[in-house]
Amino acid sequence: MRVKVRIPTPLLSLTGGKKEVIAEGATLKEVIEDLERQFPGMKERLCDEEGNLRRFINFFVNDEDVRFLEGENTPLKEGDIVSIVPAIAGGS
């Protein structure tokens, strides 16, 4: 499954400035693994030490937040658009 992934500004340094990249995988989890292969360091920014999606990053498949789908196991189909959008909380 080839999907388009939209990269937020804080991660552009990892993709060489590319705002959209193509990745492969049947689930969100697999896509993150593929992103890590293509852009080393990406997984650490998206997942915590246990490999769970970081809670301050919102992942959308097309228009839906994956927390309303199947989280990191959300299935993907050819041509889906995965958006990575950091949540912004209020400073300390």
Partner: peptide
């Protein structure tokens, strides 16, 4: 959904979104 849109716009336009990129001050 509005908030998501604004987070994406804030990455592309030099605007001060008070509750996105200016949020730590705003709060």
């Amino acid at each position: 959904e509005v908030n998501r849109l604004c987070a994406e716009i804030a990455m592309n336009f030099p605007w001060a979104f008070v509750n996105v990129n200016i949020r730590p001050y705003y709060a």
